[in-house]
């Protein structure tokens, strides 16, 4: 009897683990395919199979970096991501702090107005007119401001709920000690917001790095393109050289995978905020 139960438990455990591995393989196989083929020569890669490369062609990466102008596009992506992360995090933190602390009617309305943006789609057609009239078409500044604007609603939502968990007594104590309102925010509140700010920064970085629609609409000159748009363009030109396309994909994805591995904890906490009451 007891032995029978132990055997069922063992079988169950094997089944559960086998299923988990099967699923993981289903998700890993396409990614491994890209990694493996990025190291093959053009003929071998045209087959696009999972066989390991006979002799790894590390030179593919150098070839792509040169042909795909990866140096410039990497710097573009880095510039857009870092600038949007800093600007959006700062502006969202300032806004959510005041909107959370002061809950007058106007402030409640403004908070709802901003957060409603989570549900609002972008109207790219009229956005072009607006971008033209403020002279931001085809500029790096324009792209950075667009990323900041579109990611503000969700970031304000995330930070707002976190601010309300910091006791207000702290603010009053700081003011009594002679801090100015701005000094209170910078020296006392911002450090306390660090966990949620890291989450916001990681999520904003990933979103900005992966995005390509804004540049697709609003950046005409290819020297301003981010890596995502450039890799797609490269794919159009070199679709016969899958090894090069794969190497380009690997290099474009490497930064987000790195940030994911380092910031996994923060991503999960950001995603679950609002969705799960903890």
């Amino acid at each position: 009897m007891k032995q029978g139960m132990r055997r069922t438990r063992l079988l169950k455990s094997i089944g559960v683990n086998a299923l988990a591995w099967l699923l993981s393989l289903l998700l890993l196989a396409p990614l491994l395919l890209i990694l493996i083929n990025s190291l093959k020569d053009s003929t071998a890669a045209s087959d696009m199979n999972l066989a390991l490369p006979v002799s790894p062609q590390w030179s593919n990466y150098a070839v792509v970096a040169e042909k795909g102008k990866l140096g410039v596009t990497f710097l573009n992506s880095l510039c857009y991501s870092v600038a949007s992360v800093l600007l959006c995090t700062l502006l969202s933190a300032m806004a959510s702090y005041v909107l959370s602390r002061n809950r007058r009617k106007l402030h409640r309305f403004l908070y709802l107005f901003i957060v409603l943006g989570i549900a609002m789609p972008v109207n790219f057609v009229t956005l072009m007119t607006v971008m033209q009239s403020v002279r931001l078409m085809n500029t790096r500044t324009g792209i950075i401001l667009l990323y900041t604007a579109t990611q503000t609603p969700f970031n304000v939502f995330l930070i707002h709920s976190f601010v309300s968990r910091i006791p207000e007594d702290i603010d009053e104590a700081a003011i009594i000690d002679g801090a100015s309102p701005a000094g209170l925010f910078v020296k006392i509140v911002l450090p306390l917001l660090k966990p949620v700010l890291v989450t916001v920064m990681v999520l904003t970085f990933l979103n900005t790095w992966n995005e390509f629609v804004m540049p697709l609409y609003f950046l005409d000159s290819s020297e301003k393109w981010p890596m995502t748009l450039a890799v797609y363009n490269f794919f159009g030109m070199y679709f016969k050289d899958w090894n090069l396309v794969c190497a380009d994909i690997v290099m474009t994805s490497a930064p987000v995978i790195l940030v994911y591995l380092l910031g996994q904890k923060y991503i999960v906490s950001g995603m679950t905020a609002g969705a799960v009451k903890g």
Binding site: M94, A95, Y97, V98, T126, L145, A149, T150, T152, F185
Partner: peptide
């Protein structure tokens, strides 16, 4: 403190 976020969001997101 709200103006920066509000300005960008208003002009580049809501206005269009």
């Amino acid at each position: 403190f709200v103006f920066g976020a509000l300005l960008l969001y208003g002009v580049l997101y809501v206005l269009p």
